[in-house]
């Protein structure tokens, strides 16, 4: 029997896979995609909890998270384009001019 607990564990695993991606990758776009995985892991946890508690609020919040993710994707990708245009790179370790 599969319960919401199984989905919670899956959510935790996906979240930290995304986190490893954020830390280890150099490519800003891949980092960005890893962030999307983390967001979706969070969504999964919300939906699982809604299921477990029998309240709809968890699903409603996922709706908002998706909206914010969409907005973030639009702005974030625009930032990456602007950055690429100025620095000719989207490698995270080469973009360090804000150090001091």
């Amino acid at each position: 029997m599969i319960t919401s607990a199984h989905f919670m564990v899956l959510s935790a695993v996906l979240f930290f896979i995304g986190a490893v991606g954020v830390v280890t990758r150099r490519n800003l776009i891949v980092i960005f995609m890893s962030v999307e995985i983390m967001l979706n892991a969070g969504n999964l946890a919300f939906v699982a909890i809604a299921n477990r508690l029998g309240t709809i609020d968890g699903q409603t919040i996922v709706f908002f998270v998706m909206t914010v993710a969409a907005a973030e994707a639009a702005v974030g990708l625009a930032v990456i384009i602007a950055m690429f245009r100025n620095a000719e790179t989207i490698k995270a370790d080469e973009l360090s001019s804000l150090r001091w």
Binding site: T3, A12, L53
Partner: peptide, 16 residues
């Protein structure tokens, strides 16, 4: 996290 979540959400959920 998996351990904590597993332990705290074990058992049956609400009837939907």
């Amino acid at each position: 996290f998996a351990k904590v979540l597993w332990e705290h959400s074990a058992g049956d959920g609400a009837v939907l």
